[in-house]
C-alpha cells in the first residue's frame, strides 16, 4: 500500500466519511463525487453511522499479500443502515458466530502493516453490536 494512497483514503477508512447527494439525498460510500442514483454532482461530506448488518460473508484461510498474519478472518458485505454496501473484515468474532443479517457496528482497527519498517494502515472493520447503546 503506497503512502499517498493510504493518506488519501484516511477519512473514509478511519470514520466512514462518505458523501450525500444534495439533490436526491442518497448516501454515497465510498465517496465518488457523483450520485449513483440520479447522476448529480455529489461532493457534500457525510459521515456514515457505522451501523448495519451482514449481507453476506466468507472466511479467508489463504490470505492475499499483507494479510497473512491475520488468517483465518472473515470478510463481509455489510449493508449500512444509510444504504451503501461495503466490503470489510469482521473482527472480535469467530467465523462460526457470523450469520447473514447479524447486526454489526464499525470499529477502527489495524488493516495491515507494510513490513516492520513501513507504515501501518488503519481503517474500518465491523464487529457484532456489543452493547446497548451501540457505539
Amino acid at each position: 500500500m503506497s503512502v499517498p494512497n493510504t493518506w488519501r483514503l484516511q477519512q473514509q477508512r478511519y470514520r466512514l466519511m462518505g458523501e450525500v447527494c444534495d439533490r436526491c439525498k442518497t448516501k454515497i460510500f465510498p465517496p465518488r463525487d457523483v450520485c449513483p442514483e440520479c447522476e448529480a454532482p455529489a461532493k457534500t461530506q457525510f459521515a456514515l453511522s457505522g451501523r448495519g448488518e451482514v449481507y453476506s460473508y466468507s472466511t479467508v484461510y489463504n490470505a492475499p499479500a499483507g494479510f497473512e498474519d491475520a488468517t483465518p478472518y472473515t470478510v463481509a458485505l455489510v449493508r449500512l443502515e444509510e444504504g451503501p454496501l461495503v466490503t470489510a473484515q469482521l473482527t472480535d468474532v469467530s467465523a462460526e458466530e457470523v450469520e447473514i443479517g447479524m447486526p454489526v457496528e464499525m470499529v477502527t482497527r489495524r488493516l495491515r502493516a507494510d513490513g516492520a519498517e513501513g507504515i501501518i494502515s488503519y481503517g474500518y472493520k465491523f464487529r457484532p453490536v456489543q452493547f446497548s447503546p451501540a457505539i
Binding site: D69, A70, Q89, T91, R109, R110, I120, Y122
Partner: peptide
Amino acid sequence: PGLDEDVVT
C-alpha cells in the same frame, strides 16, 4: 489485544 489492535485503535 487482538492482532488488529494497538494503542491507536
